[in-house]
Design a protein around this nucleic acid. Structure first.
Lengths: 256, 256
DNA sequence: AAGTGGTCTAGACCACGTA
DNA sequence: ACGTGGTCTAGACCACTTT
């Protein structure tokens, strides 16, 4: 006689969840450390007497939680995390860019940082950018995009928009903006940023974002939209950044 | 003659991805608006001539991206977003809690906010909490946990820890901390917070977190760990918050 | 060459929401 | 009552990595 044991059989949880729970518990108990290989589909099929698709689903749960990572032909492995600390307020202090240092140098001490996929062009601003900059629809802006790769792992990409009428033909229109970066140049042009606003969201990446940041399954992105304001309240830059959430901890320090 | 078309057949993309791409494009083109029902498993099986599991996988992609949401017995629907704006710095200004208002009232103007699952207890602090508070291992702390439900949707839960020796038997040990909340009480006790640090991470929720916040698939959580410092630099509170990323936009305003 | 995960089929029963 | 998504089986071929 065949007993067809559905999920109701002895517990009310689906099998794949119970398998995922067991693996998750083993990871958190330290039985599998960062980088270790987990039991694969075939192991789980044997151990738990389930079909391939069910074992697969269990491993899928852990990947979607960001706990594990599959490598084709090799196995499923426990993920390791070593996030960067991004000090939101200090890194933008006038002393940073005033002294000729890059804002980014504050985030990645003694790690190899490569800037990648640089693109600088003049274009017509779209709706949301116009709204954020407070300029009429169709205004010309300079759009600067680039990607940051740390120790071989892409961690962030960013596009910043500046109204064309204030950047003129300064180094902001070049790939290399020179010492102190965009903000130092804006200061020379008489539009030094005096105030910043950062908006933070988190969501799952689109397929394109996942590829550009080499994200594994179960990794959200953090989106930061920064507006820089000059004296008088005019918005002089919008910077739209997309970060690998596994690579970053954001920090904001402020007084009551 | 049967042509067995594998993923290599005419394109190099898997079928389920092509189906997901088509649906995603239709959503972004506005063919399906927020709340609309997408074609279901049976529709996709017929339209694309695939097996149930393949149609399912395609719909799974959209859910994991946070674009769609399945309702058992009903269908798969396009998700709608209307995030709250949480002004990280202004909401903690002394005037907020100094004037007897709750810090939370700043986030949710004219929406129905319910505080839920309140639990206040004295306990021994664990490792990470001790490190963050700068107290020796095993120190007694008060742990205050609660959940916030906005218009029927849980949006956040938080646990805050305060060293037992400074809260004494003040209202901080009660479910209701009184006008101005914990920070106003700390001020009365001579430990008014003068400085805050917020650390922000994002990741996929555990199963427990997903349930407590009623998160659908493909929704990350944002974790904020706030440390409040009194005059002299002593940490007087750690607040560990877990937010539904679909319900929040964080904002930080500061000067250069 | 052997083993791994990735994709896919063609069935099945279930719990649930809606009509 | 019916259609929906949720779970599950028992096979199969593929591309990939490792040995």
């Amino acid at each position: 006689m065949i007993v067809f044991m559905t999920s109701q059989g002895s517990t009310r949880q689906p099998k794949y969840q119970r398998i995922a729970d067991a693996l998750r518990a083993a990871i958190q108990a330290g039985e599998y450390g960062p980088g270790d290989r987990l039991p694969g589909e075939n192991d789980l099929m044997a151990t738990y007497e389930v079909a391939r698709m069910t074992a697969r689903q269990a491993l899928g749960v852990l990947q979607n939680e960001g706990l594990a990572e599959a490598r084709k032909g090799a196995g499923v492995f426990v993920r390791a995390f070593t996030p960067l600390r991004r000090r939101g307020i200090q890194r933008l202090a006038r002393e940073q860019w005033g002294s000729g240092r890059s804002v980014w140098s504050a985030d990645s001490e003694d790690r190899e940082l490569v800037v990648d996929q640089v693109d600088v062009r003049e274009e017509e601003a779209d709706g949301p950018v116009c709204a954020a900059l407070g300029v009429p629809a169709g205004t010309q802006v300079w759009a600067r995009s680039r990607r940051f790769v740390l120790d071989g792992k892409p961690v962030l990409f960013a596009v910043s928009y500046l109204p064309a009428d204030i950047v003129g033909d300064s180094a902001i229109t070049q790939a290399d903006t020179g010492p102190g970066g965009t903000y130092a140049r804006l200061a020379e042009l008489g539009h030094a940023p005096v105030h910043f606003r950062e908006e933070i969201r988190s969501r799952m990446p689109s397929a394109g974002e996942a590829e550009r940041l080499a994200l594994s399954l179960g990794t959200p992105v953090i989106q930061i939209v920064r507006t820089a304001f000059a004296e008088g309240g005019r918005a002089v830059e919008i910077n739209e950044m997309t970060l690998d959430s596994a690579s970053y901890v954001l920090e904001y320090d402020f007084d009551a």
